[in-house]
Computed example of a mutant assay.
Amino acid sequence: MTAVLPAPRTAQAPSAGGPAGARPVRRRRRPVRALLRFTGRWTVRMLVCTAVLSFLGLAVGPRVADYRTMTMLTGSMAPTIDPGDVVVSTPLDVEDVEVGMVITYHIPIDDHRVVTHRVIEVDRTADGTVAVRTQGDANDAPDPWTAVLSGDTAYQVQAVVPEIGNVITLLRESVLSTLFVQLLPIGLGVWMLLAIWRPGREVDDADTHTATAARTEPPGATR
């Protein structure tokens, strides 16, 4: 008869940096710091995306697409269009201009500046000439001229982007222009390079915790 004796218990090897059987020390999580880091990261991304989209829409778009943009300087069309708003106008056949439309055109007097007003009267002649009377929504009287729309195309306002014209005017100031046109792109480039090259702290912490847990076994564990 052969007796079966229990196998001797193997002594637990002490873990690195602590006594035998000691559990790995977990780093204290900092949810507030992580939340601030996450919020800051996405805020910067949103600002960059907004700046890029605004630049493409206001500077590049009118050169490659069939529309125009113009900043409203006066309150003659308030509250429909306030000073500082940017209007987006698309081409329209002169023959299709109707009463009630808001169009952008050169006035026929003084400095021939560009205005954006509502059409209140349309006069078509036998030779195809189209003349309009306009008025600002906030003005008490019609404009003191009759404008003949030259060419075959007029421009009708299709959209209004609030307040962005004020931002554009502010950015044209010398100090801010230097900051945003020269220093800001450099700073964003450096920040993006650091974000790419620097390993994430969260990944390092997770890897360290996993490696420590793998090296440490609870008392009585068998292989």
Rank of each mutant, 00 (worst) to 15 (best):
G151Q: 11
E217A: 15
I164F: 08
L183E: 07
G84F: 04
L47G: 04
T50Q: 06
V88C: 08
G57E: 04
V119L: 05
I109Y: 05
P142D: 10
A159P: 07
V97D: 05
H209F: 05
R45T: 11
T153V: 15
D96I: 07
P218A: 15
V52F: 10
V114A: 14
T169I: 13
G17S: 10
V181W: 12
V102W: 00
F180T: 07
A11H: 04
T71D: 10
V60S: 03
T80D: 06
F180N: 05
V87D: 00
R26Y: 02
T43I: 09
R124N: 08
A51G: 12
V48K: 00
V148P: 01
E173A: 15
M70G: 08
G40L: 09
V122Q: 02
L73G: 03
A3Y: 14
V88E: 06
H106A: 15
A11Q: 07
A51Q: 04
R45D: 12
I168W: 03
T80H: 10
V97W: 07
V99P: 02
D85I: 00
P108I: 09
G17D: 06
T222V: 14
E173D: 15
P24R: 00
T71M: 11
R26H: 09
V115P: 00
P83V: 05
V122G: 01
P6H: 08
E98N: 10
E163I: 08
G61L: 01
V48N: 00
V48L: 09
E163N: 14
G189I: 06
A7M: 13
R198P: 01
T2P: 11
V25E: 07
R201G: 15
V190Q: 05
L92R: 11
P83D: 10
T90G: 12
L36Y: 07
C49V: 13
T69L: 05
I103E: 02
P14V: 05
A78V: 04
M101K: 08
V64P: 13
A126W: 02
T104Q: 13
G100A: 06
V88Q: 04
M70C: 08
E95M: 03
L5S: 07
V102Y: 00
Q12P: 03
D207M: 08
M101D: 15
I120P: 05
S76K: 00
T104A: 14
T212M: 07
A65K: 06
V160I: 15
R33P: 00
L179Y: 14
T222I: 10
R198C: 12
P19C: 09
F55D: 03
A16L: 12
Y67A: 01
D85F: 01
L58W: 02
R33F: 03
E95H: 07
G187P: 01
P142M: 08
V64D: 13
V175P: 03
L183P: 06
A147P: 02
A22R: 10
G200K: 14
Q158N: 13
G84A: 09
T50E: 01
V44L: 11
H106V: 08
T169P: 01
V160D: 03
A22K: 10
E121A: 14
Q182L: 15
P31I: 04
L176K: 14
N166C: 07
Y105E: 11
D127L: 06
F38S: 13
V25D: 05
N166Y: 12
A221G: 06
V86Y: 01
F55N: 04
A65Q: 07
L176E: 13
M46E: 12
D66K: 07
A3R: 10
D85R: 01
P62R: 03
A11E: 11
L73C: 03
V190I: 12
